[in-house]
Structures are given as structure tokens and as C-alpha cells.
């Protein structure tokens, strides 16, 4: 079995105000994985990433990256990690090309090599034309891509992205997904935190959900989605109806005269539902999932955990 790309053991963080941000979490991320770390705001995701990247001091626990302990062997460990933070943290008065070459310099990479890599990543991320503009003049999406290019300049084996597509439009988000899939396909292990659960479902193979500083789920995306036993569909009707239809075995609610919502067990066939609706002279012109599947699961887990926390 491959050694893990990232191994976290019993990680605890208590801030100065006694707030326990992480409560002894343990986590392994496999080499080559595309891993999602999800959780509500304040759950401990950014603290975990901060500790991995040495931006936050841990209270207890160990972290190793490709078997290099981040405390004992920090130089090797840091060479292997690239991080894209949640907030813009580059010098807004510098040019993208200078930001990348400077960052490469911090990793001991010669300017001649850094220039070639900077050109490669700026071109791949659609920023080459903007290389000599002041970075404060870039759009929000461009700034996010600049941070991805900066994180890749030393060619890390583990890339950590903390909400990389926050505030990015759909088209750009999709192109960033393709880029991330490509570098993951080339062997880079990726850890992603995001509030767009569709993003995690589309990109990630494995997932951990963190809440109140604890890992409440750590499994593959497939296994997690299998846990969802009911789905809700929104059906658009061709004719207007005044009353909500009642069909045994289905929970149906009327949204408006042209739309109903149906909650269906995953084991149930949809054919039967359509046939029953047809008998009532209700014809369907389109249908869609009410929410993202992962979103339903995520909300369920976090609410359950909240209930358990409040009982303590």
C-alpha cells in the first residue's frame, strides 16, 4: 500500500482565548487522491490547513507529508506542499510575474528556472497577458488563479486549496475544475475545502467532514452518497393544478400551480410515480433534483452533530 501523502495524528488546537478549534483529529490522505475537507464555517478546516502549512501553531499532535514530519523535517515537508489560501495574501503592488518569481526564490529556485515555470503556469491559468499588470488591478477570479499559479511554482506533490473558487463565476469555476483535474491526473495529490458541495462531488474521490473541531465522517465519496436513502425531485407540470395530488407511498407537496415536489426512497422506481400521476391527468414536462445530493447529506450530518454537541 502507498504511504499516505498526508498523515495527521491526534491534532489539537486551542487558541489563546481557550477556544478549542481542533479536538484531536486524525486523518490520512492517499497519494494521488483528490480529497475534500468539508465543514460549516468555523468547523476547523482553515485551522487544519494553517497548521499543515505552518501558519498556525498546533497545541498537540503530529503531521507528516510524504513521511516528512512538518516539525522535525520542515524544509523537506514544505517543499512538498503548495497552498492556496482562502484570502488574497499576495502583495497587491507587485506584478504577477514578480510574485511568482519571488515565491520561487523563497524555495531556492533559480530565477531562470522560475521564469520558465511562471510562463507555463500563467499561460495555463490564462494570466499571461496580465503578467506585467499590478496585481491589485486583477479581477477576483484572476487573483484566485494567481494564487494557484503561485502555489504551483515550486511544483509541490501536495496541493491544498482553501475555497479556491469562492466568488468565481460558473464558467471560470468549471475551467478551474478542469485545470485541477488535469494536475491531479498528473499525480499531484489535492486537498480541497469548499462551500460549493457540487464542486466536491464533481472533483473529489474521498471526503472528510469536520464539525466543531472533530471529524464526523471520513469515507469515499461513493460510500457517502450511498448513505443517502431518499431524494427530492422538483417536477414541472404542463397543466395547472389546484390541489396537491395524493399518491400512496410518496410524500408530495404543491409548490405552485405548475410545480410539485416529490420525496422518493432511492429504492423506489420513478416509473410508478409517473404512471400514478398520468392516471390523475398530470403530465410532467421536466424534472430536477431539488438540492445537490451531497448537500442533503452534509446538512443532515452537521445537524445531527449539532444536536449531539448541544446535549453535552
Amino acid at each position: 500500500m502507498d504511504l499516505p501523502a498526508l498523515s495527521i495524528k491526534n491534532l489539537t488546537k486551542i487558541y489563546n482565548d481557550s477556544f478549542k478549534a481542533l479536538d484531536g483529529i486524525s486523518l490520512d490522505v492517499r497519494q494521488g487522491d483528490f480529497f475534500a475537507l468539508l465543514g460549516p464555517n468555523g468547523a476547523g478546516k482553515s485551522t487544519t490547513i494553517g497548521i499543515i502549512c505552518s501558519l498556525v501553531r498546533k497545541t498537540e499532535g503530529t503531521i507528516s507529508v510524504f513521511q516528512h514530519d512538518v516539525d522535525q523535517d520542515f524544509s523537506s515537508a514544505k517543499h512538498l506542499i503548495g497552498v492556496v489560501p482562502q484570502e488574497f495574501n499576495f502583495n497587491q503592488f507587485e506584478k504577477p510575474i514578480d510574485i511568482l518569481i519571488t515565491q520561487a526564490g523563497y524555495f531556492g529556485i533559480k530565477a531562470s528556472i522560475a521564469s520558465v515555470r511562471a510562463e507555463k503556469y500563467l499561460k495555463q491559468l490564462g494570466l499571461w497577458e496580465k503578467r506585467n499588470d499590478f496585481s491589485r488591478n486583477l479581477s477576483g477570479g484572476m487573483k484566485r488563479r494567481l494564487m494557484i499559479a503561485r502555489a504551483l511554482i515550486h511544483e509541490p506533490k501536495l496541493l491544498i486549496l482553501d475555497e479556491p473558487t469562492a466568488g468565481v463565476d460558473i464558467e471560470l469555476r468549471r475551467s478551474m475544475w478542469n485545470f485541477l483535474k488535469e494536475i491531479n491526473g498528473n499525480g499531484t495529490t489535492i486537498i480541497l475545502t469548499t462551500h460549493y458541495l457540487e464542486e466536491a462531488e464533481n472533483l473529489c474521490r474521498n471526503i472528510a467532514i469536520i464539525d466543531h473541531g472533530k471529524i464526523i465522517e471520513n469515507t469515499s465519496m461513493k460510500s457517502l452518497l450511498k448513505m443517502l436513502d431518499r431524494e427530492t425531485f422538483v417536477l414541472d407540470l404542463s397543466n395547472e393544478i389546484d390541489a396537491c395530488p395524493e399518491i400512496e407511498g410518496y410524500s408530495i407537496s404543491l409548490k405552485d400551480q405548475n410545480q410539485i415536489e416529490v420525496e422518493i426512497p432511492k429504492s423506489e422506481s420513478l416509473n410508478e410515480l409517473f404512471s400514478e400521476l398520468s392516471k390523475k391527468n398530470i403530465s410532467i414536462i421536466s424534472m430536477r433534483n431539488k438540492t445537490n445530493r451531497l448537500e442533503e447529506l452534509f446538512l443532515g450530518m452537521v445537524e445531527k452533530n449539532l444536536g449531539q454537541e448541544s446535549q453535552k
Binding site: 520542515f74 489560501p85 495574501n89 499576495f90 515565491q103 523563497y106 524555495f107 531556492g108
Partner: peptide, 14 residues
């Protein structure tokens, strides 16, 4: 102030 120091802190520079 700009949190630009993070560029240095995540790097292996002693």
C-alpha cells in the same frame, strides 16, 4: 498587514 508574510512562512526559508 497584507498577510503577505504567509508567502515566507509557508516556504522552507530558515
Amino acid at each position: 498587514f497584507q498577510r503577505n508574510i504567509e508567502e515566507l512562512l509557508v516556504s522552507p526559508v530558515p
